[in-house]
Design a binder for these strands. Structure first.
Length: 548
RNA sequence: GGCGCGUUGGAGAAGCGGCUUAACUCACCAGCCUUUCACGCUGGCAUUCAUGGGUUCGAAUCCCAUACGCGUCACCA
């Protein structure tokens, strides 16, 4: 078979050669330790945590080493593509503070190794494909979908390995004349790789996260170009990452199984292999069973979930970093004020077993992150979130900025600052009682206090309260009320002899607290009274007294 | 079914042949502090590293087998 003739028949319009591309995309001028990484999301309209997770690894590896991190859009599947999805990816990454040196951007693209959208690289793929045909390493396959699935049935029945290989690879042996006739007849075809492997050998591939992997060599004649001339992931990955001079391929472990295909292709083309970094999958508990986070079942997989819940990008970064390199937490404890990007991230330290996604941990980290911010910073970011997700609350915040910052800051000063806020959504809930428009009762009164007693306590409080009192005088009055109704003044006394008292001073305080804030958990009550002010306090307590 | 990856407490995990009576963080529990709730502090939470064999003076750490979990086997990525 004259492969050159075949390549002309298959790609009559392609005149560029691999050499042309090598010249157009020369090796990058970077120091030897600099890593070049990328993420390659497909524009399906759904940007998930896994995208961010891998992006973080790539970003750290590249920028920590003085290298390049770029964004490539893997849009080779037109069936799955969704309108506006490219912008969604770019916006999500930028929201989470992932910055690219090259690649697709909102207005066009930047960088010298583009185009960065695979659909626009058709000529490159075809010219490499043409070269493979010339070398006898690729051939057209005319098998229809039905034939392939029939073949699969036979393979299952015969207990043979699935796929297009060896004796099952019918189109492998087509003659030039047969091919020519089929093409003349307008039969559609895909281009398959003629795998030099038999599956009898093992190959060794180094993985930066997993160490040396020993795997069976590839023997499948997998598809390089689909019938529309667009490459499959496998081919696009090899061509792009070579020509874009990627040094480290960071991707999920679901690619491990097809790794032998990729390295075989790299070897066939005489190109150096990149260093692979296969990250562990993110899982969650589903009843008793662990499973991979699923797009359909798990809202927390979507990046938009974290935006909507009002988690800070910073918190998500730090959470992911603890999952990625567990020594991050210790580093953070030792360096509370450094930017998380100063942490020495390492691929070797990454876990290679599936990781359970832990929302509790994210919440804890998020509390710490917010606790470190100033009231002004919180106000600004909180307001920005409210403007997208809770306009009513945004209006309240804007109406009186000083008041907003004041309530945000209650109890946050001193050596032991409160950590009440864990997300902006939670902050709306937490701060709502400071605003009459949002005030509501979330918690009940202490269960051990009868309704009648509660009325009396509140009435007495209203009578005694003087807003000019300082904190200690104010509290003395609470004590007087407690004593008057026979409550234990020390919680311990009540604990020791619960039968001797109707309750302790704690219960008295809590009755007043619930009347004023609508819940049992709040910052310092006296401060709250000062901030809310006499008329509104009287109104709230008065309403509670009337109600019963 | 083939191939591959994995298995240390409720979760993330450190440890990678003796320093481990298994670090650290989250969760949980108890106590302390406190006018409540938080915050903070103290302590508890794996006599054991999926199971069974083996190597070794010595194993969570090395080897083998088994089990279980996960991933993957498309003209999807």
């Amino acid at each position: 078979m004259d492969y050159t003739k075949l390549s002309q028949l298959l790609f009559p319009e392609i005149s560029s050669t691999p050499d042309d591309w090598e010249k157009k995309y020369p090796a990058r001028d970077l120091p030897p330790e600099a890593k070049v990484t990328r993420i390659g999301p497909s524009p399906t309209g759904f940007v998930h945590l896994g995208n961010l997770y891998n992006a973080l690894v790539g970003e750290r590896l590249a920028h920590q080493s003085g290298g390049v991190f770029f964004l490539r859009i893997e849009d080779t599947d037109n069936k799955r593509e969704v309108e506006g999805a490219v912008d969604a990816v770019i916006n999500a990454m930028s929201f989470f503070d992932v910055n690219f040196d090259e690649g697709a951007t909102i207005d066009g693209e930047k960088g010298d190794y583009g185009p960065y959208c695979q659909r626009q690289r058709k000529e490159i793929y075809q010219s490499i494909a043409k070269h493979l045909v010339e070398e006898g390493l690729a051939y057209p396959c005319f098998c229809a979908e039905e034939e392939l699935s029939a073949m699969r049935e036979t393979q299952i029945a015969a207990k043979e390995n699935f796929g297009y290989w060896g004796k099952w690879a019918h189109c492998r042996e087509l003659t030039y004349t047969e091919i020519e006739q089929k093409i003349a007849a307008g039969e559609p075809f895909v281009l398959r790789y003629r795998s030099p492997g038999s599956g009898e050998k093992d190959i060794t591939v180094e993985d930066a996260i997993r160490g040396n992997l020993v795997m069976q060599e590839n023997y499948q004649d997998f598809v390089l170009l689909k019938s529309d001339g667009i490459p499959t992931y496998h081919f696009a990955h090899v061509v792009d990452d070579h020509l874009m001079r990627t040094t480290h391929v960071v991707r999920g472990e679901e690619w491990l199984a097809t790794l032998p295909m990729h390295v075989q292709l790299f070897d066939s083309l005489g190109w150096p292999r990149p260093l692979y970094c296969h990250t562990a999958v993110l899982e969650k508990m589903n009843g008793e069973q662990r499973r991979k986070l699923s797009k359909r079942k798990d809202p927390e997989l979507a990046l938009s979930y974290y935006q909507a819940e009002g988690y800070l990008p910073q918190s998500v970064w730090e959470y992911l970093l603890t999952v990625l390199n567990s020594n991050y937490e210790e580093w953070r404890l030792a360096n509370p004020d450094l930017n998380c990007r100063e942490f020495p991230f390492s691929a070797e330290k990454m876990s290679n077993s599936g990781t359970l996604f832990d929302l509790d941990k994210l919440k804890d980290i998020s509390k710490e992150v917010i606790a470190k911010m100033s009231a002004a910073e919180i106000y600004q970011q909180f307001l920005a979130w409210c403007e997208s997700y809770d306009e009513g609350f945004a209006a309240l915040l804007k109406a009186d900025r000083a008041y907003a910052e004041q309530i945000i800051d209650i109890g946050r000063d001193g050596d032991r600052p409160r950590k009440d806020l864990l997300s902006w959504k939670a902050a709306v809930e937490f701060l709502s009682f400071y605003y009459d428009e949002r005030f509501k009762h979330d918690d009940d009164y202490p269960a051990n206090i009868t309704e009648g007693l509660r009325q009396e306590i509140l009435t007495a409080y209203l009578a005694k309260q003087d807003f000019a009192d300082d904190n200690s005088v104010w509290f003395e009055k609470i004590k007087e009320i407690a004593a008057h109704f026979g409550f234990a003044l020390k919680p311990k006394d009540y604990k020791k002899n619960p039968e001797q008292y109707p309750g302790s001073i704690v219960d008295v305080s809590n009755v007043i607290r619930v009347a004023i804030t609508g819940r049992q958990n709040s910052p310092d009550l006296w401060t709250i009274c000062q901030v809310i002010g006499e008329p509104r306090i009287r109104q709230r307590i008065g309403k509670e007294i009337e109600m019963s």
